[in-house]
Design a protein around this nucleic acid. Structure first.
Lengths: 226, 226
DNA sequence: ACCTGTGAAATCGTTCACAGCA
DNA sequence: TGCTGTGAACGATTTCACAGGT
């Protein structure tokens, strides 16, 4: 508990716990122990306790956690007790889908701007948001007080867009393009990348006969079949 | 080296290395050292070497790695040298966007079926794929030899859809719904969850004054201010 | 009796540093 | 000399197991 650094693994799990607590709350439950929470959602109870302990003592020994209370604590810890303005770059199918994604409606995140470079799209509306020319990115971002940029453009356009985001001083990026974006320490990029997801599934489906009967030497021409 | 278990972190990085190698190859380069690869893409060269070493000796001491060769090795390791049939469940904006997502076009993954429950959608086409009634899931999955299911339905529908996927014997799932799906060991679920992504950004943006000056005891009523 | 919070142990992952090959 | 492959050191994360509240 001292002022240690909190690992990202921990905060990602807080996000999961929050979702679980919301589900329990919606069932009308009021209290839960780390064990029952773990059983129900396939988590580890010691880890739940440890994760929470980094931030305070939210439970009562012998009793468990008050669901509503713990939920609100996690909301505060994650910074979800305020609202964030999003800008989406790329008004293709994905970008448009995000504008009125149901999950965003009840959340702390609100789409305030949608950009594209296609003159045929600029000026049109998607879910109440007018598509703006990417040329005006910087000024619109300032005016709308954007906190988070969402990259929903094709891979080849993503690096340029990322530079624009950097220049505009936006510190948080959600990236859907299948590219590596090199962020400095001032920024945080989260990539939700369909390809990586599928590739990891591919590895899982590839039943390796043995994970360790590998080909041997490298070299360009096999020295001889011998 | 020995038949150790390969960590998921390693295979995820292979996916990244693959992307990097493709980029280098497209620039006409033929050879690269772990150091230059690391510099260029902000990776760690020792880690690259170690990750690769789990699967074989792909490099040449004093020289480096042959880009095309290493790329092909990783493709084989990840099981990307064959093709996979996808079924997408949910023909909303997200599901439809995925059907002709550019990233999928040049990949090993091919959308073979698209399901929905909405009678108004069933029978219509999206990017060459006819939307099928979810009722026929099991039989269509068998006929089309589906390897991977993609969940693109609202959160409340996701658990039922997941059960259907399980019953149909599909072992790999890409989940876009913001819910926890409890997979057994036979299955692998990868969740690409917009909400978790945003919540992790939210934590990052929440400048904690000190990560460790927490509230203290819990308990319902403070015993006294004393 | 029950359940949290937490040191200590165990496990897992990363980085170092260098032997050995081209 | 240059760069890989790899034990060994280090660091991070998870799990155990129990002291201490209620």
């Amino acid at each position: 508990m001292k002022s240690e650094k909190i690992s990202q693994l921990t905060t990602n799990r807080l996000s999961i716990y929050l979702r679980c607590l919301k589900e329990l709350a919606s069932e009308g439950l009021t209290s839960v122990s780390s064990d029952s929470l773990a059983d129900r959602f396939h988590l580890n109870s010691a880890q739940i306790r440890k994760d929470l302990a980094y931030f305070g003592e939210f439970g009562v020994r012998g009793v468990g956690y008050d669901i509503a209370l713990l939920r609100d604590h996690i909301i505060r810890i994650l910074g979800l007790d305020r609202s964030y303005n999003l800008a989406i770059i790329g008004a293709g199918r994905l970008g448009s889908a995000l504008v009125d994604y149901e999950g965003l409606l009840r959340s702390s995140f609100h789409v305030k701007a949608l950009f594209d470079v296609d003159p045929k799209k600029i000026g049109k509306k998607v879910g109440g948001i007018t598509i703006t020319d990417l040329k005006n990115f910087q000024s619109v971002v300032k005016k709308a007080n954007i906190d988070v940029a969402v990259i929903a453009v094709p891979a080849n356009a993503a690096p340029d867009v990322f530079e624009k985001i950097k220049k505009a001083g936006i510190r948080a990026v959600l990236n859907f393009a299948p590219v590596r974006l090199n962020a400095d320490d001032e920024m945080r990029v989260r990539s939700l990348d369909v390809n990586s997801g599928l590739e990891s599934l591919s590895y899982f489906l590839t039943e390796r006969p043995q994970p360790g009967d590998k080909p041997k030497p490298a070299g360009k021409a096999r020295k001889s079949a011998q």
